[in-house]
Every structure is written in C-alpha cells, then in structure tokens.
Simulated scan of single mutants.
Amino acid sequence: MANSYFQFKQFRVEQDKCAMKVCTDSCLFGTAMDVKEAKSILDIGAGTGLLSLMVAQRSSASIDAVEINPEAQQQAKENFSISPWADRLKLYPESLQEFAAHNQQTYDVILSNPPFFVSSLKSPDAAINAARHVEQVFFEEILQFTQNHLDKTGKLHLLLPPPEAILFQKLAQKYGLHLAHTLEVYTKVDGKCIRHIQTYTFEASPAVVESIAIREIDGVAYTAAFVELLKDYYLIF
C-alpha cells in the first residue's frame, strides 16, 4: 500500500485522495525541465500538485495548475497551502477546456504529465484507468491550448511512455510545434526505456535526444546522473 504522503526536503505531498501517487518518473520529470528563467508556468492535470511544487522550488514563477478531478483538486489545494510557495501557486478546479474559455494569459512554460497509455492495456483498477487512459482528443486539446497560450519563445514539456510520445509528436506538427529535445528514461543501465520527457517549441530545429538511467545495472543503486537531478528533493540524497 502506498504511503499517504511523500516527504521531500522542502515540501510534503499528501496523496491519500489521489489514484495516481508520487512516482519516480514524475519526480524525474519535475527536475528535468528548464524553468529557471520562467515567469509564468501552467501545469495541466495537476494531480497531487507534485510537478507544480517541484518547479516552484527552483523558480520564481507564478504557477497556475488545472485539475478536473474533485479528489485531486482537494489534494492539490491542500499541498499548495502547506508549501513554502503558497503565494505563487493557484489551482483552477476545472477542465482544460473550461480554463481555456476564460484564460487571458500566455505562459513561458506549459507542462503536463497527462493521462496516457492510449495504446496500452488497461488496468483493472477503475480509478487508475480514469487517470491514465485518454483518447487522442485530449492530446489535441493540450496542443490547441498550447498553440493559443504558450509564449512564442516558450516551451511545452511532457512526460509520456514511448508509444504515446511518438503519437504526440505526430499530432504536434499540425499545431506548429516542433520536438526540440527528448530525454529517454530507462529503468536501469541497459534496461528498458519506460518514458520520454519531451520539450516542444514553436521554433524548428534539429531535435536533441539524450538518455538517463534511474538505477545502475544491478537494479538497486541509483545512477550518479539521477542523484544529481534529485539531490535537492529526495531526503535520501
């Protein structure tokens, strides 16, 4: 059974109300995005609020977060309120479409760890299915919003499994967004690639592909690269 909370060095994430708990790949995503110079950030599908909190720790940006699930809304609000950055974090308890209808702001950074596994087998857990399984239309909603509300020099960051990452890249072309960078995430050295951390921009340029392994070849010890990224967050480092 997952813990009811996850304690980081500078903040705590309560997660008892959310189907999707704090996980290693999400934490890695939260550290891999370039947000140091960002002034305005949007988190689409905030869940517990984990990603918003992680980018708040290492930026001075104002951060908006959109979440449609009532239980997750309550959880994210709680986690924002007890964090050191409560004055910079704002939750919008609505769908992305509803938010888009009234939002007048453009963002330097838009990020999302969206429901995924479009082409994968479904979990028997209905709550996890609701959080993870999404039709292609939701990816297009993210792209449509990004096209209209991302600053022309801004960046869109996503965390997706490899098959969905390929699908998203194909869809992005219709919206004038170009894949600029991919960080391939492997379970361990010589292990399986489980996630792609993608960065999109409006400017077309040759895409850079890098990789990181979470654990050493023994499957136990964390790699030096992983420790370097998470050292300001994980209590064990």
Rank of each mutant, 00 (worst) to 15 (best):
A172H: 03
G30H: 08
E14I: 10
K174H: 15
T223A: 02
A221S: 13
P115N: 03
L179M: 03
R58W: 09
V22F: 08
T106V: 04
V134H: 09
E78P: 00
E140S: 06
H157R: 15
F139N: 04
E203M: 12
I63M: 01
G49E: 08
C23E: 12
A204I: 11
F80G: 04
I63V: 03
Q198R: 04
T199F: 09
K39E: 14
Q198D: 15
L91M: 00
Q74D: 15
V109E: 00
E228Y: 01
N129G: 13
C23A: 13
A86P: 13
E203L: 15
Y5F: 13
V66D: 09
I128A: 12
S4M: 13
Q74S: 15
H157I: 11
E141D: 14
K77E: 13
Y175Q: 05
V208Y: 11
T223H: 04
S81Q: 12
S120G: 12
C23D: 14
L42V: 07
E14N: 12
S205F: 07
Y92W: 15
S59Q: 14
A126R: 07
M1F: 13
I41A: 12
M1K: 15
H149M: 02
L179V: 08
D87M: 09
D87S: 13
I212C: 01
E37T: 15
V13S: 06
M1C: 12
A56L: 07
E135L: 13
R215W: 13
L28S: 04
K192M: 10
I142P: 03
L53W: 04
A100W: 04
L230I: 09
V109T: 05
